[in-house]
């Protein structure tokens, strides 16, 4: 009985999956509904973080350290990505005086 109450005490893995799914979805919605390039960038960061949390939770629950090492690599990658992405946004802003992504639709042609 004591053992059962002790296992119930721990947060089930499914709840971590659910939380990550919700945050990932919020990131996707943010990319879809905003036109500000920086906000879109933040939404991508949210998605990356959701995946990070999921990897860390899986790693902790399955007792395999590789998942947390992957999270470490994703964080290094995210730092590089933010530096490059914000540099691109600064360049776009310098050329168009706006960070509205609809102005960039001429990239289609």
């Amino acid at each position: 009985m004591d053992n059962i109450s002790a296992t119930i005490q721990v947060v089930p893995l499914n709840h971590y999956i659910l939380l990550s799914a919700i945050i990932f979805t919020i990131g996707v919605v943010g990319v879809l509904i905003r036109r500000n390039a920086i906000i879109i960038f933040m939404s991508i960061e949210l998605m990356l973080n959701a995946v990070n949390l999921l990897l860390a939770a899986f790693s902790a629950y399955s007792g395999d350290a590789s998942g947390q090492v992957f999270v470490f690599f994703i964080m290094a990658l995210a730092a590089a990505e933010v530096a490059i992405g914000l540099a691109i946004i600064v360049m776009v802003y310098r050329n168009t005086s706006s960070i509205d992504i609809n102005i960039l639709n001429r990239l289609k042609w």
Binding site: L13, I17, A21, A57, F58, S59, S62, A65, Q68
Partner: peptide
């Protein structure tokens, strides 16, 4: 997620690996 089979995953997190 509901269709997911989480076999091979323990119910409690391993505290040491982090």
């Amino acid at each position: 997620i509901h269709a997911l089979q989480t076999t091979g995953v323990s119910a409690t997190p391993n505290s040491e690996i982090g």
